[in-house]
Design a protein around this nucleic acid. Structure first.
Lengths: 333, 333
DNA sequence: CTTTTGCTTAAAAACGGTTGCGTTCATTTC
DNA sequence: GAAATGAACGCAACCGTTTTTAAGCAAAAG
């Protein structure tokens, strides 16, 4: 005795109209006489009818669902973006399918394909690295895609980010001005464009403008995690650095804690500027000075851009660069 | 010149078989002659055919998608659960639609309905409070539901959690044993069952067993946020408490930082045990002792339970209680 | 050699909607 | 009063699968 699901047909019969008419009132189509609309609405209410979104999706070729590929929800940086994405998605009546990729190119391709199979209307991709595999899939697919908090060197798809070069340059300059001549750059894999290309460039520019020589031994590649920071600090010390630009907040907190645990005073003996301004920066003691990327906004704007693309509206620019700031706290003098 | 999407029909024609046969090979149905299977597979590959999951969903009444209602992805507690959920979902070929609810009962009902309209095969609900509204929707719907990290007083739906009473009792006892007679309980709204019923009960039991009187002025209701912790600490001090059980890690870090900022030594003058053992507990200095809920596992097990329910397998018990521990760090003596 | 049996496969009916097109009918217009 | 207009609405094709039913056919059985 299954609870028979009731369909648009049942409503039509009960209201003495055709399915088409019911469909119209459900979709707010104006071509329905008010009296008819009222009657249909009553029946819908009485029967407790809920349109089947899957059938709708098949017929209309729209699912009002977007796929979101995220490296790890557990990472504050990405979850902040995700929150921005979901909020404006909801605002525009979309839902998001969230899929963790662990920045693993295979998983990414895999997940991208199932997302496309599910006929998502659009896609948002987060991740530091855009592998060739995934890039290939991107250009093959005709569903709109936008990158959030990531850059696409060859602007195939939409993207929302900040000016990483300028941000790191500003941060580095600040550290130099406060007296450090040995500023370390601690970041993710240099093979990834954001790190290897942009951050490194900003770093070098700041050095150049300050008349300092670029010293490769002050550049550190590291995983983005608390423990990696803890483990890395001794090497930083050995390098003679007295300050560091760090690419990730968890990593920065690790460095900070390691410094503290080693009796190194922050910021007196060692200064730190981190990159994401997540809640973590406030929770640390001393609080961390950070490049202030508007994470939530990046997500929100990315989703907004995506809605425009899905509506086939005209886009002024496929890539949007949001402003950034440097929020000074206690890890810098 | 739209890139014509190719359908199962195209494959059938090209391979000189019927759609049914193509469907069979796609779904791994054994009733296909190897030679035929091979031919179909070749055509699929050649045409780059991808089954349309929406059509599939309509025909089979299964979407291989589950809805996940989460208060806020940005909160480590919930995102850890979410990660566990997604991982086993992926393992079982499901995708998750993630929807933030902000613990707002209206949004929850709203989102629940759109999730059901989208024909999700199952639902996972996270949230401290189960409002009457949402409970009503739960019992009305016949799609499987399980709660993750939350309790359902009247066991309507599945649920995975730990024994909150025992956990808080153990933590409180530990604090008492180390010398505190004035242990504060800092938690979320007492109107929510987990806090008002379970945590409070565990707290009282520990006091009783230690022969201490229950003092209402040592119980604090607070929002779960870092800033709330910062603001609350002075009141804690005023109450004369020398230790606290805290219901949330961010909140606990707030309390800790406020104590440190006020020159109160932790753990010498004030001890703290927090509840979720998220990464935050390690990042704080001193590191926070915490009840160790297996967050990831709770999510994972919840999803596993859900898969069983979706398969209509027999379930031994609708509610699963996972074990907990107390991980001792530096915020206790 | 005819009848069963069992494996493959084809045909076609769902699944629950959307939507273009055509029809109906009450109003206007001439 | 007949013709034209336009608003409401019904018809039916279609969306891309799954799944049931039955047919075809070769091998086994009698």
């Amino acid at each position: 005795m299954e609870k028979q699901t009731i369909t648009i047909y049942d409503v039509a019969r009960e209201a003495n109209v055709s399915m088409a008419t019911v469909s119209r009132v459900v979709n707010g189509n104006p071509n329905v006489k008010p009296a008819t609309r009222k009657k249909v609405l009553e029946v819908i209410d009485k029967l407790d009818y809920r349109p089947n979104a899957v059938a709708r999706g098949l017929a209309s070729k729209k699912t009002t669902t977007v796929g979101v590929i995220i490296p790890d929800v557990t990472n504050m940086f990405f979850s902040s973006l995700a929150r921005g994405i979901d909020d404006v998605a909801t605002m525009y009546k979309y839902n998001i399918i969230l899929a963790n990729s662990d920045e693993n190119s295979q998983k990414e391709v895999q997940v991208l394909n199932t997302l496309l199979a599910k006929q998502v209307d659009g896609l948002i991709y987060m991740g530091n690295d855009i592998s060739d595999n995934i890039r290939q899939e991107f250009s093959r697919s005709k569903t709109p895609i936008v990158l959030a908090g990531s850059v696409d060197p060859d602007e195939q798809v939409g993207s929302v980010n900040i000016d990483y070069v300028a941000a790191v340059e500003a941060a580095t300059t600040q550290l130099i001005k406060s007296g450090s001549t040995q500023v370390a750059l601690v970041t993710g894999s240099l093979a990834q464009p954001i790190n290897g290309q942009y951050r490194l460039q900003g770093y070098k520019q700041a050095l150049a403008k300050a008349g300092l020589a670029y010293d490769e031994s002050l550049v550190f590649e590291s995983e983005y995690s608390y423990h990696a920071g803890l483990a890395l600090f001794p090497q930083l010390q050995k390098s003679g650095a007295t300050a560091a630009i760090v690419g990730d907040d968890e990593l920065a907190v690790g460095l900070l804690d390691a410094a503290l645990d080693a009796g190194v005073k922050v910021p007196e003996e060692f200064e730190i500027i981190t990159s994401n301004n997540t809640k973590l920066t406030e929770m640390a003691r001393p609080q961390l000075t950070s490049i202030d990327q508007p994470l939530y906004d990046i997500g929100a704007v990315a989703m907004r851009l995506l809605t425009k693309m899905m509506n086939k509206e005209d886009i002024d620019a496929k890539t949007i660069r949001l402003g950034f700031d440097i929020t000074t706290r206690q890890s810098t003098k």
